[in-house]
Design a protein around this nucleic acid. Sequence first.
DNA 1: GAACAATGAAGAGTGTGAACACCGATGTCG
DNA 2: CGACATCGGTGTTCACACTCTTCATTGTTC
Lengths: 248, 248
Amino acid sequence: MKSVNTDVAYDYIRKKILTGEFPPGKALMTEVLAAEIGVSRTPVRDALRKLETDGLVSIQAHLGASVKKMQIKEFSEMCDLRLALESHAAGLAARNRNEGDLQEIRFALEAMRRLTEAVIAAETEQPLLGELAREDARFHIAVMSAAKNDLMKKEILRLHLINRVLTVPLVPGALPTQKAEVDLRRREVLEKHNDIFEAIARGDPGAAKREMEFHLQEMIDHNLRLLTRAESGVLARDLSPEELAYGS
Amino acid sequence: MKSVNTDVAYDYIRKKILTGEFPPGKALMTEVLAAEIGVSRTPVRDALRKLETDGLVSIQAHLGASVKKMQIKEFSEMCDLRLALESHAAGLAARNRNEGDLQEIRFALEAMRRLTEAVIAAETEQPLLGELAREDARFHIAVMSAAKNDLMKKEILRLHLINRVLTVPLVPGALPTQKAEVDLRRREVLEKHNDIFEAIARGDPGAAKREMEFHLQEMIDHNLRLLTRAESGVLARDLSPEELAYGS
DNA sequence: GAACAATGAAGAGTGTGAACACCGATGTCG
DNA sequence: CGACATCGGTGTTCACACTCTTCATTGTTC
């Protein structure tokens, strides 16, 4: 299948969801969307169904579609899934990486280091935070690519996207914290990334897996703490080309 | 969505694929299927799309749908995915299992032990092999249930199904082997299952994970050996209720 | 003169669109 | 407070248009 109009509708709705323009819970009515996009209801229906399998949309018979809204439990389960997959991928990466993979990971890591210091130095962090998050994603994507398992990479990317739809709206200033504390955490995260990189670079699967596992577990705990407190506020960052390309 | 006719079509086609009646590579034409099932083409289309996301069907624009036919590489990647997920789930199971979970796992294990001995004793094994495979599946499903992560369970079940569509056709007598050799392997597999059970029972996540990892890796290697040699022969076993229910 | 490649038409099958049928929700009336 | 009617919206059907494939025919080259 993969027809033109269906793709147009799919890309359109998907982007709106990922940028936060369609917030979790928003009703997605085929007729409205069809008129908005300029196609018939059929390709919109197809697109929604595809988005459902991506995990971005939930659909109930005769009740319509809406942007997926996760419960804490479901979110936590999804994070655990990601932990299992991504740490395994890190182990594979340590085995299968080649020189190009290492370079890509190193680039992302260096960009993160530069941006982290810039963010810590700056007064107003907002614009740089988006960049930092993008480089973070680039790092993780590079690790997955180095694992040389396309199926796994695809699956992890899917989880990343779902993860973002839920966590991005929380980023701004959901939890009131000390800047010094946040800065410390930033440096720790950076060091963790460095540890992961080094384990992969020296070809130590066990260590790479453990480091990634530890890093993700920490991030998950952090996000869960945020989620249990905050519930509103919307701010989206730009997507990396690879993330945008996923599934299309 | 999830409407009646779509579900009917979905269940119909899915069952045909899983029982082997629609072998890998078979073309699935919407019009033919629609007439066969007694509904219109639209719900058939929807069903095929859903089956595509399940990984059982592949669809190309203007070329139609067909039962998924995997390359060795893709199969190997999928197995690795399953390894990552299922071993992680085994670790979780060791943490989260309750008495009921343990009992269910123990039941499946005892049934496997009984059937394994029966198969080894019997001359003509065929009918018992299906039962044994079913109990094997039941064992793994019980472990996943004990992990208390529905998302992960669903994902692993999905992989199990894809796995079966590809491996079941190979089972009969693809690889000519000594009966004594096969019997030895059967006992080893059984012992592995027992090790996994005991690790979960005594609440040792690390051991449970390692045992499951080892067991699956062995199974994967075995299947890959088979796959690289044989290519034909069809024999399907019955599905457990839970496997049949998956996704509906 | 034969073989192969290129081009055209025919056919099969899918993607799309608009109308109809059905279901669930909401509001009103008894 | 409950039952019923109305309405919004989806699921389904059917018909049409389009795309791709395939096969045959023709032209070209060895």
